[in-house]
């Protein structure tokens, strides 16, 4: 599960805008497999955290109703050169993270 996160961050007038794209199936657990009629088990990201210079700035708790291959954008007060880390954990315990430097 290495490169599942695309992360961009740009500083402008003291505000850093972060845009992240993760690749994940985001199964709700409510969908049925058309052939077998069985429910497709839930498999979605539960927790997303963003840290700047090791300090928590945002924590997202997600259900299955976030779209497939989730997109997340947020802003924080910061500046160029900040080290930004975004990580996620899903309901199966898989996880990934990415780090970028704010431009």
């Amino acid at each position: 599960m290495a490169k599942s996160i695309k992360l961009r961050a740009k500083a402008k007038k003291g505000i850093v805008t972060v845009k992240a794209l993760m690749s994940h199936p985001m199964e709700t657990g409510l969908r049925k497999n058309k052939k077998t009629g069985k429910l497709i088990p839930a498999h979605h990201i539960q927790e997303v955290t963003a840290k700047v210079n090791d300090k928590l700035v945002l924590e997202g708790l997600w259900g299955g109703a976030i779209s497939k291959n989730p997109y997340l954008s947020f802003k924080y007060k910061g500046s160029k050169g900040d080290s930004l880390t975004l990580s996620w954990v899903d309901n199966k315990g898989q996880s990934d993270s990415a780090t970028t430097t704010v431009k």
Partner: peptide, 21 residues
Amino acid sequence: NPLIAVFNLPAAEPYVSTRIK
């Protein structure tokens, strides 16, 4: 299940953007 997401913002600006079902 109506709840889609909760974003806790300990140090972020009150702005979030995402895509939902």
